[in-house]
Design a protein around this nucleic acid. Structure first.
Lengths: 232, 232
DNA sequence: GCGAATTAGTGGCAGGCTGTCAATAACGTC
DNA sequence: GACGTTATTGACAGCCTGCCACTAATTCGC
């Protein structure tokens, strides 16, 4: 028989669905994550990720968005990026009837979060999380990196006008590696992704930097061949 | 208050979780999808995707894998690629208590599927599916394309030895566009992804083609700069 | 047999993109 | 005004890409 949908064993009570959120932001030149102190005092792990339980009157996406709003009420919702990473079920040592939908989100620099939540550097965070949530943070970071090349999410972490050095720093944070300045700018201009304003900002020391604005690409260029070098 | 996990309204019965599968294969020079006739005779739509209901003793991943095995019992399971696309909840006109986890999978050319399932060209399939499942197929195809550059999934659709023309055809199917022969081969060899055997295969007409074997990349090359041209 | 048609495989070229170095510009500090 | 710092730009070599043209090895039709 091949119709599993009707004949399968049905659970008497169904699943509880949890939504877990990994919120990133640029934070002191590092990548920051929202964490809160663990609810359970006896836990060996001090921190945990923001979670919510899915109600029957909302979608997982909406639930994640609400959770983000609750954590960071002052953040502009529209520009915030929230995307699904994966759905896990029946994890070891967890309730058999529990499913977890993992999301990541991005917030602009300096966004305030409501207590007991706080920003913490990713690297500091990992050690204080339960192993499962540590994996979640890593998975979220991977998903984030995978989308950096596909969507202009870096611009959403910046104010409407910004310097190219700012932008490059964001990219370096998101990708976790240094980029070459000249190459970065050349590629950026070639893609017509930014347009210059006639304002300049002096950051203290050094030459003032010109301010730029994000310019949505008019038409995407012809797609190129296959990139085998990203495999493995 | 910010602890939603404990105070949130809890459902009395919890969610039913469905797993939906979009299985692709190369099929007559087109991309094929597994469909079955719709269970509901009164439905306006003739076809539907394979679905299963998640039991409380299995993970969604395992459930999807089992479903794939049921649809295509003879397929080698190990090389089959199955990956999560997304999780949808509370879709319009659906049960409020139902969550759907969507997967895509790949099967090698010529894999047989068990009745009432059948292979059908993607383009033919779309018109006969309910709009929601049509969207699912498109989402699965998008997810598939996003992974082609990241993982060597194209090789899993081919036998251990294959011709470069075979490989190129697979890539063209997966990506949905033509590739230039010379460029394709140049990039392929540069990445050392294949190694030549000393066998040749005559396909009927035309010059025989040399057979190649997949060679897992030893070390990935240094990552390059940001690709802004894929944005938008 | 022999040429046409067909498919495979290669070499080369122009142009684009990248990594890198170096030069210049415009500020604050002392 | 010299110096350190940051921004911006130009130049160059090398790699990669799209594209074209050519050669190679079969089958097919006659």
């Amino acid at each position: 028989m091949s119709d599993r949908s009707s004949s399968r064993r049905a659970s008497a009570r169904g699943f509880a669905v949890g939504v877990e959120l990994v919120l990133f932001t640029p934070h002191d030149g590092e990548l920051g994550v929202v964490v809160r102190s663990a609810a359970d005092e006896r836990s060996r792990f001090k921190l945990m990720l923001p979670v919510s339980t899915l109600g029957t009157d909302e979608t997982p996406d909406q639930c994640a968005l609400d959770l983000a709003k609750e954590v960071a009420p002052t953040a502009p919702t529209a520009p915030t990026v929230i995307e699904q990473v994966a759905t896990f079920g029946a994890r070891p040592s967890a309730d058999k009837f529990r499913l977890t939908v993992l999301y990541f989100g991005l917030l602009p620099t300096g966004t305030a979060v409501r207590s007991p939540h706080a920003w913490l550097d990713v690297s500091d965070t990992l050690a204080s999380l339960a192993p499962r949530q540590r994996d979640d943070v890593e998975a979220a970071r991977e998903a984030l990196r995978a989308r950096v090349d596909q969507q202009p999410i870096a611009f959403r972490l910046l104010p409407p006008v910004f310097t190219l050095s700012d932008l490059q720093r964001i990219y370096e944070l998101l990708l976790g590696r240094k980029l070459h300045k000249a190459s970065f700018r050349r590629a950026l201009h070639a893609a017509s992704l930014v347009e210059a304003t006639d304002e300049w900002r002096s950051e203290g020391r050094g030459r003032p930097a010109q301010l730029f604005r994000y310019a949505p690409p008019r038409r995407r260029r012809a797609r190129r061949g296959v990139r085998f070098d990203a495999l493995g």
